[in-house]
Amino acid sequence: MDNNSNNNQIARIDSLKMLEIIEKIPNLTADDKHELSKKIASDDIEIRKGALEKMTQSSIAHNDLVTIMGELSALNKEGMYVKSKQTIRTGSGTFEIESKGGDTKLIIPVLVIIAVVIISIMVIMFWRR
C-alpha cells in the first residue's frame, strides 16, 4: 500500500498487547502462559500464510487482466464485433469485466436491408390493389 493511503487511517490497537495481558493474569500457570504464547505465534504464521496466498492471487489477477486487455485491444483493432464477460478473482475480491461493441459495418446494412424488404413488400401489396 502506498504511504499516502495510510496517512488518514486511524491508529489500531497495538495487537492488544496480548503477551503483556497474559503475563498479568494471576491464575495462569507457566505452562498455560507457554501454551498461549505458542497459540499467538501459530496465529501469526497463519495470518502471514493467508496474506501471502492473497497477494499471489492478486498478482495472478494482474497477469490475467493484462492478457484480457491484450485480447480485447487486438479484437478492437481487427474491427470485430465483441461481446465478452470475464470474472477474475483477486486477493481481496473479484473483478468482472464486460466489453460490448465493435464492427457496425455489418449490422447497420443488414438492418437497412430488412427495412427495405419490408417496405418493398408493403409497396408491392399496395400496388397490386
Binding site: M69, L72, S73, N76, V82, T90, S92, G93, T94, F95, E96, I97, E98, S99, K100, G101, G102
Partner: peptide
C-alpha cells in the same frame, strides 16, 4: 484501448 462499451464491477 477500445472503442467499445466497457463495464467493470468489483468487490
Amino acid at each position: 484501448l477500445t472503442t467499445n462499451q466497457v463495464s467493470m464491477k468489483s468487490t
